[in-house]
């Protein structure tokens, strides 16, 4: 599904990714762990199309060159980034944003756009599953939301857009244990043999709730070690220093 081959990225002449390679197949959950500044967020930004990076190397998504696509085209093709810091957008009603987003993606995929009633039914059902307070949907997007609510809102968007590849950028940071479970449940119910997840995290904790198939250690912009779920436990014990 996703093939990253020798990816290099610099920003303001500072090199962040140095020859990163990674393959993700449908049905898999990959976790990337690494210390601060190792390039985790840069990787998720580049995959979802944020501007401002000098990029070389190859990224194929379903055999097509991903780096050539605009941000919104990547979303249409099924890439979703759950933000580490979801943005507050004053004056934009959450429901209207969600409907605009869902219909933009549906339209691009050649599916029928949902009318207001169909949409409300769907969003109601999805938010119930995520224990997301429906009243929040009538508020301005992420404005005045707690850290946990913002992250739940990201997972709600993910479940609405039904992406093929979901990238979770430190979704666990700032979550209490109950919110963490809700978010993990949300991810687990979406898991199936056709989609894949890339989970970026500092800590092993989230991986207790979302079982990864592969764990990768990212240091100085490249993957220095890959393994099974046990690698996360090993990391937790030994710290990142031993991998340098």
């Amino acid at each position: 599904m996703l093939k990253i081959n020798n990816l290099n990225a610099t920003i303001d002449n500072k090199s962040i990714l140095n020859g990163l390679s990674l393959d993700i197949n449908p049905g898999q959950v990959h976790a990337i762990m690494g210390p601060n500044g190792s390039g985790k967020s840069t990787l998720s930004n580049i995959l979802s199309g944020k501007k401002g990076y000098e990029v070389s190397g190859e990224v194929l998504f379903e055999e097509k060159d991903l780096l050539e696509l605009e941000t919104e085209e990547r979303a249409h093709k099924g890439i979703f980034l759950a933000f580490q810091y979801p943005l507050e957008i004053p004056g934009v009603n959450t429901n209207i944003f969600l409907k605009t987003s869902l219909n933009a993606v549906r339209k691009a995929r050649g599916e029928k756009e949902l009318d207001a009633i169909e949409f409300l039914k769907l969003v109601k059902e999805k938010s119930k599953k995520l224990k997301f307070d429906e009243e929040k949907l009538n508020r301005q997007l992420n404005v005045g939301f707690s850290g946990g609510e913002k992250k739940k809102n990201e997972i709600l968007q993910m479940s609405l857009l039904d992406p093929k590849l979901s990238i979770l950028d430190e979704t666990d940071s700032g979550l209490d244990i109950d919110a963490l479970k809700v978010v993990a449940d949300g991810v687990n119910t979406l898991r199936d043999k056709n989609n894949a997840f890339l989970i970026i995290t500092h800590y092993q904790r989230l991986l207790d709730y979302i079982k990864p198939d592969f764990v990768h250690v990212l240091m100085n912009g490249k993957i220095v070690k890959s393994g099974g779920p046990d690698l996360a436990l090993e990391l937790e014990k030994k710290g990142y220093e031993n991998f340098n």
Binding site: E70, R74, T100
Partner: peptide
Amino acid sequence: DSIFYLMSRGLNYQQSRELLINGFLLD
């Protein structure tokens, strides 16, 4: 960053810009 956030949800640049501007003027 707000534009990037909205575009990552499938909105094109024009739609994202409009949404942000309308949001700015709403109050």
